[in-house]
Amino acid sequence: MALLHLKNLTKYFGGLTAVDNVSFDVNEGSIVGLIGPNGAGKTTVFNLITGHYVPDQGEIIFNGQNLVKKPTHIIVSLGIARTFQTIRLFKELSVLENAMSGYHCRMKAGIFAGMFKPRWQKREERQAIEIALKELKFVGLDVDLNQKSKNLSYGNQRLLEIARALASSPKLIILDEPAGGMNDQETRELVELIRNIRDRGITVLLIEHDMSLVMDVCEYIVVLDNGKKIAHGAPEEVRENKKVIEAYLGLDEE
């Protein structure tokens, strides 16, 4: 059964059709890649799923619920977490706090609990730290937890973003170019990490430019070009697909 079901999704920016009647399914427990040349509308699709943009047409069904017009924070609490193409950590906050922030949506304490600190609030705080430590360990981030996140290396910042997303205990994690700025060694470890995430039962949807990574890790690939879906299927099929080759070659000619 499809965990995420996109149907006829369309988004206009002024006169530009950024996403044009796109439909595809993401099955539970799979690793799905969304690829396409620059400006194909991949990140826009992500932003539509996570509620940063509202689609002009179409449906986004997640786990049986329509996400259209739901605010982002609700979508997160329903179980979709994401990372950003341009890293968006809380730069001045510590590594630990960044990881803890993911757990925010599973916590309850408000201002009164914050001021008067009843026992359940302390337990909850402790739990947040535990989850954050667990996820930091899971992604393999072994650094000083009290340093500001802006001081981390690029690759480590990407890992911290993934840890933050995982801390919200998502059903689906959306990774926007997770290998961007990583070296070969880091990329290999990332492939491993993505598989481990899936093995925990979390479905993965990712955008990536590194084709070898996509072909290696994804089980199913959707190809966008100019906002339209031009192909989909297993990596081998997509690689042979004429339209896909044209789309990428066409880009090269420019």
Binding site: T50, H52, P71, T72, H73, V76, S77, A81, R82, F84, R88, L89, F90, K91, E92, L93, E97, M100, S101, G102, H104, C105, M107, A109, G110, I111, A113, G114, M115, F116, K117, Q121, E124, E125, A128, R164, A165, S168
Partner: peptide, 25 residues
């Protein structure tokens, strides 16, 4: 106390990056 709580941290997330704060719920 409030600063060292979920609420205090959430305010800082917003200050640091609204989009990311929203994206973390």
């Amino acid at each position: 106390r409030l600063r060292n709580s979920r609420f205090g941290r959430a305010l800082n997330y917003i200050k640091e990056d609204e989009v990311a704060a929203e994206g973390t719920g």
